[in-house]
Design a protein around this nucleic acid. Structure first.
Lengths: 233, 233
DNA sequence: CCCCGTAGGTTAACGGTGTTAGGTTAACGC
DNA sequence: GCGTTAACCTAACACCGTTAACCTACGGGG
């Protein structure tokens, strides 16, 4: 079983590890992480619950393996978005934000478990692909700074900051990540209902409304702040 | 028991509902929401597990009641911060952000359960004090706009937005909330380890580094963007 | 050929969980 | 005195993650 068949006879139901992972993924997506139980996974595969422990060390390990697949899927969302806009452009960064939102809304249970993990549960999640997507964002920021479309240094009068200037791309990437991640998590836990903005799926509208606030802070002011009239498709 | 004693003889251990709530709070803070079990709460109170069901409809209800207290505590953090800076000032809004971070870091398990709630579990959480803190932020934004310290309208060339101009304070408040909430949740799930910035408790440094990005978007540009040299204490 | 190790399961059980059903006891109003 | 009700109790149900012990088929080495 450790030797995988050449994905030729894929019509027959998957065996062992693969089948367990697929069943776990289905349960996690449909019923959430608390609705995913060893016994239900086993039943769906057609096997006893303890058989799972031959492939995974426990429930946490099983969930982590599913989460790892989710992060790969996540990365594909981001990469697709990046591929559609030139390197160093603001549009690429904006598109990354949209892709982030799209993934989160289309894979809510994935997203919840991906970013709900307590530090002590990370274990088998140390090495995420693309640093959990962060590397892609950081690279886009670095490119945009190099291209001159994004401010290459800090704002006015902040020479005494505790973070060194070397950390600038990380700081900016974390800022962007925080904004979009905060929006998503607030929306997913229903906090957007408190404000008088809109019904469900107003997340994209909100993000659209954020961009001027973000842009006029990160776009270089000297050559034309009028340059982004109708950038986002 | 429904009639509360006049908080005079508070030396004796609390009875009934109060004792249960306190035990539940302790367990939630120390062991997290999954470590909070009916039986352990009951044992700590010195009562059988099913006795809890006389005061609370179930575990979710019990947790929600604890969360409600947490939101009151949360509100006191925010109000204290607001009281130390004049109405309409940027400093007040900055201080709100700091207070938000301080609460989240000093009450991590509270924070986790406060903002991890699935929509279907809200039930007894419909009416949060101060709209879960959002009302305070929104008011600070409205005041700052009225005082002229914050941009009173959208940025350049966005007349065709889906959100109406009436929603401007909500949009800006949600933007600020998203940023700080995103930062906190990323830090709490260990995502800040991916970036090359700093060890733990670098959250405040990061927030400090964010403020120029945020400010140069929301501070009015015409009369002096140099005005915030050493604002935060 | 036999024997042994291993992959891939099995059943039974332990201690834990939230929750329900039904019974008991004490206090209080009429 | 009597009925009601608050405030508990024990027993039990149906789950949960996990462990221990056992079984079975198969493949390779002596």
């Amino acid at each position: 079983m450790t030797v995988v068949e050449k994905d030729q006879d894929r019509a027959e139901p998957a065996h062992g590890e693969t089948a367990i992972l697929e069943a776990a993924r289905d349960l996690l997506v449909n019923r959430g992480v608390d609705g995913l139980s060893m016994r239900q996974v086993a039943e769906q595969v057609g096997v006893s619950a303890t058989a799972i422990y031959h492939y995974f060390s426990g429930k946490q390990d099983l969930v982590n393996r599913v989460v790892l697949r989710a992060f790969e899927r996540f990365g594909s969302y981001l990469r697709d978005a990046m591929a559609q806009h030139p390197e160093g452009s603001i549009e690429r960064i904006e598109a990354l934000g949209y892709a982030y939102l799209r993934f989160a809304l289309e894979n809510q249970e994935y997203y919840r478990v991906m970013f709900h993990i307590h530090p002590e549960q990370r274990d088998s999640l140390e090495a995420l692909p693309d640093g959990g997507g962060y590397d892609l964002l950081r690279q886009a920021v670095v490119d945009a700074v190099a291209a001159g479309t994004i401010r290459g240094q800090r704002g006015s009068g902040d020479a005494d900051l505790t973070l060194s200037q070397d950390a600038y791309p990380d700081t900016l990437a974390m800022y962007l990540w925080s904004t979009v991640h905060g929006l998503v998590t607030l929306a997913l836990c229903g906090a957007t209902d408190h404000c008088n903005i809109g019904g469900p799926a107003s997340v994209f509208s909100l993000y659209e409304a954020f961009t001027p606030f973000i842009a006029e802070g990160i776009v270089v002011p000297q050559h034309g702040n009028e340059a982004k009239k109708e950038s986002n498709q």
